[in-house]
Design a protein around this nucleic acid. Structure first.
Lengths: 165, 165
DNA sequence: ATCGAGATTGAGAATCAATTTCAAAATGAA
DNA sequence: TTCATTTTGAAATTGATTCTCAATCTCGAT
């Protein structure tokens, strides 16, 4: 019989880590924090505070936006989430539990986000920084354009409704 | 006798190009637009609207912020300036006259910005996009950290005021 | 030079994401 | 239980940017 090693859900792990991070600096555990963290880690992808707030208030309508903002800040400081500032104004958060660094491909039509890693690019970046005497702490590489699906959609419409001119 | 080919200032060129772009779509030339464009192209670097507004109102205090915002948008649409959204909230504009694409090194301490080009990185980006079936329209590569000068300053202070512990 | 449709302006209001304020409620060590 | 401290939700505030609108300006046609 095949056995899968018992594996804690990432939400559970995150809650534990957050707990120690919180008590380590005299903060306090609260019901709303737990609910927000739980909700956040049960999602995947890159959530805006708005989107997260929606899911959270679905579970407990009394929770306010400010608390979600505050909690995501804590999660970020604790290294359990990372904040991304893509084009379009609002901050998006993604889980950062034992995750490698990675960059993003962002579809400007449907908003979908793909992730990728590329060691060669990272190396070249380091070299560039070195050449300029820069000590890099973090970086941002984002490729914007049309995802495959949106390209196909585009093509389809162009065929059916050719540019009248 | 050596003769240097007469060369128009980039500000002059920009004004010309803007003029044709503007008349081509039924817009109108105005005194404040000219002044803003002139001021913008007489500067170098990456200006925020605030910084530009300061320089502009120094020349004509009656010009409002909204007009500067509007003008920079036109300049961007005309391809004569490009908008950058570095960390820290406000949009910064840089002249885009006959400029190659380039990326940025941004010092998080003093705010200075270095530019660089790297063909190899661009190629690798294209390859990544291709692998994911993405049609990239633009991208953003920003390296954040400490510039040489700020590293040296840091070092200096650490020597004189070693971490007491 | 004058006219007039339409574009532009400046000031202030509005918006949007995010942060701060503050009084009331919750937490947790003693 | 007590009580200093932290947290919360709602509302106010901030900061960047955009919008609104009445007054003004521009420019091609007279």
């Amino acid at each position: 019989m095949k056995r899968v090693a018992p594996r804690k859900s990432s939400a559970a792990t995150a809650r534990e880590r957050l707990a120690s991070w919180i008590s380590a600096r005299g903060l306090k555990a609260t019901r709303q924090r737990d609910l927000i963290v739980d909700t956040f880690f049960s999602q995947t992808g890159h959530l805006s505070v708005d989107e997260l707030l929606d899911k959270v208030t679905a579970r407990d309508p009394s929770i306010g936006a400010a608390t979600v903002y505050r909690t995501m800040k804590i999660l970020t400081d604790a290294g359990l989430a990372s904040a991304r500032h893509f084009e379009g104004g609002q901050t998006r958060y993604e889980a950062a539990l034992d995750r490698h660094h990675h960059d993003h491909l962002i579809c400007t039509s449907c908003g979908s986000i793909l992730e990728f890693e590329n060691e060669r690019i990272e190396e070249l970046q380091d070299r560039v920084a070195e050449q300029h005497g820069f000590a890099v702490t973090h970086h941002k590489l984002e490729l914007y354009g049309l995802c495959k699906r949106c390209q196909e959609k585009d093509e389809y419409f162009r065929k059916r409704f050719p540019d009248p001119r």
